[in-house]
Each structure stands twice: as C-alpha cells, then as structure tokens.
C-alpha cells in the first residue's frame, strides 16, 4: 500500500535521511525504531508529504505522492510529536475544527467527534479548555484529532513522550485496538522499545539516517539467536569493573545500565563465574543476576553499539 524508495533528505549539507526504503501493507503495524536524531521524524515528515525529499520517492498504491499529495492527505492521519492543538479552545472545539478541515459537516461531524472523544476516554471533560488538561490528556486529544476522518494510515511520531503511565497505556491500547479491529495501518515511531514490541508487526531500525535492520520482531531478534543477555544489578556504579568487562574478549558487548551492567555474551559461554571473579576483585557487590533472551533493545545495541535512548 505505502512504500518509500531511496528516500533521502539533506538539510544544509547534512544528510538527515539517507536512502530509506520501507513498505507498509494494508492493516499492518510498522515500528520505526531509533535513538534521537536517527532520522525517524524526517522520514515520516516526508512520508506524510510535509517535507519534500531531496531525492527518492514515496508511493501510495503505486502512485507517487511527491508531486501530488492530495490522495495521501485524504487517507492519512498524523499524530505529531508535539501537542498540536489550540490550547485556548476546548477538546470538543479542537476536534470539530480538525473534522471540518477533512470535510466533515453536520451530524456526521458531531458523531465522529463523540466517537473519537469516547475512544480516548475524555467524554466527560470534552467541554473544558485544553490548557486545563494534563500532559497525558492533551496527548490523547492530539491522537483523537488524527482519527476523526477514519484514516487508512495513521502515522504516530513518538506519541507517548512525557506522559503518565495511565495515559500511555491508554494510547497504546487504543492504537492496538484500531489496528486489530478496524484494520488501520499504523506507522509508529518511538525510542521506547517496549511500545514497539507491544504494537508492531514489523520493525525498521534506524540510525544516522539509515535503516540498519528490518523485519519482524522475531527475525530481528534472531540476529542475536546465538547470544544471550546477562543483566547484573550492582550496589553502585563500578567504572573500573565495567572497563575490564568491556575489554574481555569473551563478552560481545557490555553496557552500563541504571542498576548495574548488561552483558551480551555467546549462548552457553558460561561466563558467570568469570564475571563474579572480576566483580570480587573490584569489590563490587552483586545484588541480582538475570540471564534472558535478547530483546530488540539488545539487537539495537548489537547493531549500533549504542543504547536507544543515547
């Protein structure tokens, strides 16, 4: 249904997006994963016809949208990263306006407004001005505004940034429901791994403007099928211990986490004993050890050598 071909964007000599190819089928849920500055937002800006690519093409049902984005705009809903609402108006007034610009009028507009406002759980507070809402509530209205015209494709650019867990869960559940029950195709960008794992069928991992890996979650994880992850909780940070483990040739990758360390090691390498010995030498107290199968985060770490939230 939607595909990009060698999409490239150069801003003042700096390449923000470099030859991105991706596709999305009807009703599919796609995740675009990458750290800040990876080029996700620029990519979706080009897909949503907001920014013209320096080169490459975006096609909807085989037709380029670069020259004529009219068809794309009719079927597209965009949830921007920022709260793109008129804050002096109520949620109801905002939604009415955004419905009108998609050609909805009269009773149809009213019913659509009520439908989406119920979907995001703000029916009781729809007549209050947006400035009085919490960040999470604003994000929910932000999402509702993109769904009024029943789009075929919903592009969501980090829609859960800076909100409370309850609103976050509500938004994720709503998107999941729309995707699974109504067949809405979703292109979801985030640097929250767990959101992408929960929502998306396929994932594109981006870094430095390029897609460095893509596939289903299982396919991506299979990149690390020969590895396992050891999570070690420590009493405090031990930089010298980390440095020694990082230099250990048997350990594929080492990463400092909030609680201690994350090590990616070959499956069945039986390195725990060595790790305990090194920790002992550095007077580090190990509080907990957990060996698990790799996550998408581990895949990203493996591919880029960086954490997603770096």
């Amino acid at each position: 249904m939607l595909e990009t071909e060698e999409l490239r964007k150069i801003f003042k000599g700096k390449t923000a997006v470099d030859g991105v190819n991706l596709y999305m089928d009807k009703g599919e849920s796609i995740g675009l994963l990458g750290p800040n500055g990876a080029g996700k937002s620029t990519t979706i800006s080009m897909i949503s016809s907001l920014v013209k690519p320096t080169s490459g093409d975006v096609r909807l049902h085989g037709r380029s949208i670069i020259k004529d984005p009219t068809n794309m705009r009719q079927v597209l809903g965009v949830v921007p990263q920022e709260i793109a609402l008129y804050e002096e108006l109520t949620a109801y007034e905002n939604l009415k306006f955004f419905g009108r610009i998609y050609g909805l009028r009269g009773k149809l507009l009213e019913s659509k407004v009520q439908e989406v406002i119920e979907l995001v759980g703000l029916k009781d507070r729809q007549k209050e001005v947006v400035t009085t809402y919490s960040g999470g509530m604003k994000r929910r209205v932000n999402m509702a505004a993109a769904m009024l015209h029943e789009p075929e494709i919903l592009i969501m650019d980090e829609p859960t940034v800076g909100i409370d867990p309850q609103s976050r869960s509500h938004i994720l559940e709503t998107v999941r429901e729309l995707n699974q029950k109504k067949g809405l195709a979703v292109l979801y960008t985030s640097h929250y791994m767990e959101e992408v794992e929960r929502l998306c069928d396929r994932v594109y991992i981006m870094d430095h403007g390029r897609v460095i890996a893509s596939g289903t979650k299982e396919e991506l994880k299979s990149i690390l099928s020969g590895e396992e992850t050891i999570l070690i909780d420590l009493d405090r940070q031990h930089p010298k211990l980390f440095k020694e483990l990082e230099g250990n040739k048997s350990i594929l990758q080492a990463l400092e986490t909030e609680k201690g360390l994350k090590l990616i090691v070959p499956k069945g390498s039986r390195l725990l004993g060595t790790v305990f010995q090194i920790a002992e030498r550095h007077h580090a107290q190990i509080l907990n050890v957990n060996v698990q199968i790799p996550t998408l985060e581990d895949v990203f770490l493996h591919l880029t050598g960086r954490k997603l939230r770096d």
Partner: peptide, 13 residues
C-alpha cells in the same frame, strides 16, 4: 511553533 500549522498542511486543505 505549536505544530498545528503542520497539521493543517498535511490535511486536504
């Protein structure tokens, strides 16, 4: 600044 402009631009308007 708020982003509503972009929202209008990606609409059929």
């Amino acid at each position: 600044k708020w982003g509503t402009w972009n929202r209008l631009i990606v609409s059929p308007l």
